[in-house]
Design a protein around this nucleic acid. Sequence first.
DNA 1: CAGTGAGCGAGCTTCCGCTTGACTT
Length: 786
Amino acid sequence: MTKNLVIVESPAKAKTIEKFLGKDYTVRSSFGHIRDLDKGDNAIDIQNGFKPNYIVSPDKTKVVAELKKLAKESETVWLASDEDREGEAISWHLFEVLGLKEDNTKRIVFHEITKPAIENAIKNPRKIDKALVDAQQARRILDRLVGFELSPILWKKVKPSLSAGRVQSVAVRLIVEREREVNNFNSDSDYKIVAEFNKRDHSKSIKAELPQRFKSEKEAIDFLTAAQDSSFKIENIEVKPAQRKAAAPFTTSTLQQEASRKLGYPVAKTMLLAQKLYEAGHITYMRTDSVNLSETAIKGAASEIIRSYGKEYSMPRNYTTKNSSAQEAHEAIRPTYFENHTAGADAQEVKLYELIWKRSIASQMANAELERTVVDISVSKANKSLRAEGEIIKFDGFLKVYLEGKDEEEDEENSDILPPLSVGEMLDLVQMTSEQKFSRAAPRYTEASLVKKLEELGIGRPSTYAPTISTIQKRGYVIKDNREGSTRQYQTAVLKGGKISVKTATERVGVEKNKLFPTDIGTLVTDFLSEHFKQIMDYGFTAMVEKEFDEIAQGMIGWTKMITSFYTPFHKDVDTTLATAERVKGERVIGTDPETGKPVTGRIGRYGPLVQIGEAEDEDKKFASLRSGQTLETITLEQALELFKLPRVIGEYKNEKVSAAIGRFGPYIKFGSLFASIPKDRDIFEITITDAAEIIEAKIKAEIEKLIKTFPEDKDLEILKGRWGPYIAYKKNNFKIPKDTVADQLTYAQAMELIDKQGGVKEKKGGKAEAPKAKAKAKAKAKAKK
DNA sequence: CAGTGAGCGAGCTTCCGCTTGACTT
């Protein structure tokens, strides 16, 4: 029997709060939402005012049963879910499902998990805000309607199992459009002049740059020629104080960006590690859009800063959230205890904690005081001056612990420390260089920079950024990929020792690592949706409906009215599209095959993008799959024709035919029934039989080494060596071997016991990726029999 | 894991947001 039952959303939070409240209070968690729209077609009764049919989520039945029991035994139930739209809805669903009574149910909210905040909340209970709940219902229902009416159109018109939605479809669109920008970008170039001078006494050197750039190489060389006979004089020195301010403490989005820039973590990894730090009590909640810090936190940071760095480094303050879509139910992400400079269970957690600690501490530290110096150096024979810039730090302030990273490497800044200089001083030229510089297209998105963009557009929430990124990759709309880039020539000219030498140099361009690229399906679906559902694909759509949700929350408009006025025209578009739109295959004429004179076309086939020689009705038409990194939109005729040169027979080895081709996992060599991947540094078209033999032998050796042990008792049982060390393979299932067991000494009985302990052999479920493949195989076999 | 690319066409897929485990390679 408990007097008070408090329900929060997260179990870690429940644990902390229970400590604050004492023994009269039992604190439990709902583990987020407990109820959702039913799965199938009867989730929303559209005819009947969009009446939602909610069911308790299958994985929540246990939690709900327990909460129900506790609620019945309690005098008062305190609904303490988050203070935002979703949190209010969670409270309402709890009220409904647990069968609570108005007179002993109290709704409370707090933005920070501190004792005063919670005590204050208990003193100021209120009722469930039904208008806010309605806003959430509108949000939920709109998302379901959009997602579950658009996706089936894609199944019919593009490909089965695809998906579309308010958030994901726009995320893909961003990537598709950025890719087109990059591919259509016409780079132009100009010429940058940099110079290095010595002081007359040769004590120090100074780097300077011409602030303007020249449009042509001729102008640049003319300038160097003028400089050849010039003298160089300091005309002006300007010294200005400047300040740098620390960045605000982390939100989910900025944490993901910074962990990506500084630690190279994908967003999902950052969230996983942050979750662990949170559960261990090291940091505050990691899904937040707020930069707010509690008073306790600000005080804690200040005393830690004073203790570690001194009083002059402390500058307590709070930040305001710029993003208007923020709901601010939580604090910023910060260490729970600032005195812990390090925390975490493994190296990766430790690094993330350190980042959070530094960022939070820095946000409470003094501004850095700088002194910027700008020096103008005249060139006597030219009507232009060079500029040298220097920066010195007078007081480091927050820079002592932390500086925010940047997304793009900018041109190297010449903000060195300048030596003492005086106006009128003459300088000696060491050398002056003109270099051709090319303009760059907007950079492709990384996972983290896409999150940043989505947040700017108000699309998605802290809890969904990482899942959205993973969904659009899982659906095959987007892939995270690398590009080796290509070389480009550029012109340079150097003036040194009174002579000008001109030369052509090369640089590497277009190198990409872990960037998001659209696939052909992603491009196709984006174009299709943009054509038929302009409104949903509009970058401002979410912001617009958010405004309406706010109006619902303020009681200015009923939620069914809002949904009706959205749904009526939307559903009409759905019907029209279903009835009139052609099935899309992304067909494109690439060119003509010079050998046969037949057209070469590209399109999306059942198994992905392909190129074809010959018309559809041609008996002898030929197909070839595109290689990874190639797209229908950008493939050239030359590249397409290349694809038909495979599979290629290399020769014979040990009386078996050896051929090379490209499969799902890249280039491979086939030798009898053996497949061996071709290493990345070998070209599939140039590989010789000697190279092939080497690869084959290496593969055979690896296959033998892979097999650690077999058992006479059961030939299905094998001990294999995998990427993560030894494991047990049995009837298509894999099982772990405990670390303290020596794999090659396992007996049959021990192995079977391990299998049993780990749940035994299960029928392989038709996983999403597997099912269609298995089906295709079965079909291919059926065909072969005929 | 790997060479297909239509077609009989069953029955399935799918959204966004709130939370953690329970899984496997």
